[in-house]
Design a protein around this nucleic acid. Sequence first.
DNA 1: GCCTTAGTCTTTAGCTTCGAAGTTTAGGGT
DNA 2: ACCCTAAACTTCGAAGCTAAAGACTAAGGC
Lengths: 194, 194
Amino acid sequence: MVDTPSPREPSPKDPSAKEPKEPKEPKESSPEEPTLEEQIAAYQREFKDLDPQVEQVVSALGRLHRRMNVAYGRQTATLGISNAEWEVLKGLVLSGAPYRLGPGELAKSLCLTPAAMTHRIDRMVTEGLVTRERDETNRVRVIIELTDAGREKWLEAMRLATVFEEELLQDLSDEERGALGEMLTRLLRRVEES
Amino acid sequence: MVDTPSPREPSPKDPSAKEPKEPKEPKESSPEEPTLEEQIAAYQREFKDLDPQVEQVVSALGRLHRRMNVAYGRQTATLGISNAEWEVLKGLVLSGAPYRLGPGELAKSLCLTPAAMTHRIDRMVTEGLVTRERDETNRVRVIIELTDAGREKWLEAMRLATVFEEELLQDLSDEERGALGEMLTRLLRRVEES
DNA sequence: GCCTTAGTCTTTAGCTTCGAAGTTTAGGGT
DNA sequence: ACCCTAAACTTCGAAGCTAAAGACTAAGGC
């Protein structure tokens, strides 16, 4: 998860409230959210035999993933769907035409339990993104099929996502992008083998 | 976390059950969980103007994070704590001696709501990992303090985690590790700026 | 032909989280 | 002195997920 916990928004707080006469000193050193460097320094302070190189990779990776999910969430929200629903659309589209899958297969590809799929599909059917029907040749199976509206939503979300991802990687050269992807893939293979 | 959704275990299924006479053909092509390469190929098939390099970075990153969380979860489970509790211990230790923080500060450093912290702390107090007491000089504040047992748990978890992380990165040379960490940090900075 | 076994989806109960309202305390203005 | 606002935590209600149990269907042995 997997992960798709909807991240917390700081609750923007009506800015029309009266402006405080004095901005009120930031309290002295707000320990709100330590930066990455501070966090790694703290780790070294508290745990002597720690490889800072390894820690930097692991910590940056975790933070990056969290921030990206927040960004994706903001984008899908503008389309009127949740991050969770976007994941379902992804699963269906990636299965290829004619975009039909059973709830169980969808659940596997999203690393969810079948029970969770049942409820997600309930919502998405009422929103017109997918249809649910029983397979008449094998009445045990249920078939979820992407609607045209669902496919269109997926396309819009993809367009937003690719723009964001391109911005994210704008500081990396082509060689760097290739090297980064290759190294991440190597790590993934290592962890999937065990 | 976003983060820390407890991942689903495939439910090991009692192995003492009778062995099927024939292992029963894998059904022909189990589309269970597409591999990374298959997934990227599917994306290109369904969305023509997609940069495969970018997609590889993004997809590998997401998968890697999920697998790592599963691995961490297995480790903390052997210590008798959950991934969520481990995060709280991390937050306290990283704040430095004397390992005291308010629930609100803890919540911020973990990207959770204060409400969630209240419940997590309830559990951890009964398990003896932390103590909760009111600050006598400012009776609004509550102070969560790490116990010796809690600190010991954190140390054990750190030892397991560092072993795992070292294994994860074993295929990367020192230069590669440095480059990887630096690139991830650059991406993080980019996304944190906006 | 019946019955067991396995497979697929849904339902139920419990847990964790979030958002919002509620409670208690501190500090400042009148 | 009183009250008002802000801050910090807790409580409440709703939503989502998981694991386990339930219902229904297909397939195969006796």
